[in-house]
Design a protein around this nucleic acid. Structure first.
Ligand SMILES: [Zn+2]
Ligand SMILES: [Zn+2]
Ligand SMILES: [Zn+2]
Ligand SMILES: [Zn+2]
Lengths: 155, 155
DNA sequence: CATGAAGTTGACAATCATTTTCGATAAGGG
DNA sequence: CCCTTATCGAAAATGATTGTCAACTTCATG
């Protein structure tokens, strides 16, 4: 399966995208055309995309990139925090290049997958407090908001 | 009040992944030992469990229940809202029989998976407002809080 | 510019949770 | 008890994601 879709937290449950960058860069990250292509495709999309969708786009655009590489690049990018990941209903990972660097959430269109980055100290504070009241520590959370964007909204 | 049915499958991110309404009505829901066993096992657990974990428990208890049936029963139970579902890091579905019937969230122990049901009008209100400000309609959301419960907390 | 070590790639096989198949079985109304 | 039909469940299928590993780049160095 997916040992860790987000590239962290070896335990069973999901955790949010924690900012804690590991020592990283043990070796040198090379600049390859494939990796650049993936990032570019990701940049063109204004919504979340699955690895396979990105692969299709790349192939359609004439790029010679293997599906395996797309997966690896996305994994890498999400590890370094350059792209955000979220699991859809089917449990499939979807990626998106985000503007904000720190912790934030998303408002995603159920139809076109377009998304807006949102932030909420309110929610952050609430989760901390709620967890604390129950004696839980090392608190993290996940949260995604779905809906229909203006263009996809009926009538 | 929450316009949406609230439940547990709000996201509905993957459009065509909708298998459609189960074999609803048309006949009668029969009382089978297997289905009862699954519900019982679910009742005994005080935390979220995967279909396979539940199957293992049942088999270990001597129950003769097939994995397929466990999956089907859980699907059925979640459809009727009798159990809650959430996806873990690996995108695997985990189920739990909840006390609360309406929309609520969970505080889950990353280690033992024990969980507490929590509710928050604050968060509900916030998501509605945030989505509205961006022109999104038919808003739904997902949110889970993870941490370490008192017994699993180190030192 | 040549070279080699180490990071990368990609076709293909392997995983593995979940679903589908479909003949066998059990539930329950008449 | 009988018959219709929901349900089982073993096995095969599905499908996203990962592992494999030989061939291939990148890039620092001479
Ligand atoms: Zn849209
Ligand atoms: Zn947050
Ligand atoms: Zn615990
Ligand atoms: Zn809520």
């Amino acid at each position: 399966m997916t040992p860790d879709a987000a590239g962290r937290d070896p335990s069973s449950f999901a955790g949010p995208a924690e900012p804690g960058p590991r020592g990283r860069d043990g070796g040198g990250a090379r600049r390859t055309t494939q990796r650049a292509a993936v990032l570019a495709a990701l940049h063109d999309a204004d919504g979340f995309r699955t690895a396979q969708e990105l692969h299709d786009v790349l192939r359609a655009a004439g790029e010679r990139v293997g599906l395996t590489t797309v997966y690896r690049s996305l994994q890498l990018l999400s590890d370094t925090g350059e792209v955000d990941v979220l699991l859809n209903d089917a449990g499939e990972a979807m990626y998106r290049r985000c503007e904000r660097r720190g912790h934030h959430h998303h408002l995603v269109c159920r139809s076109c997958k377009k998304s807006v980055e949102i932030e909420s100290g309110e929610v952050e504070r609430w989760t901390e407090r709620a967890a604390g009241e129950h004696g839980f520590s090392a608190v993290t959370h996940t949260m995604e908001v779905f809906g229909l964007c203006t263009t996809c909204s009926p009538a």
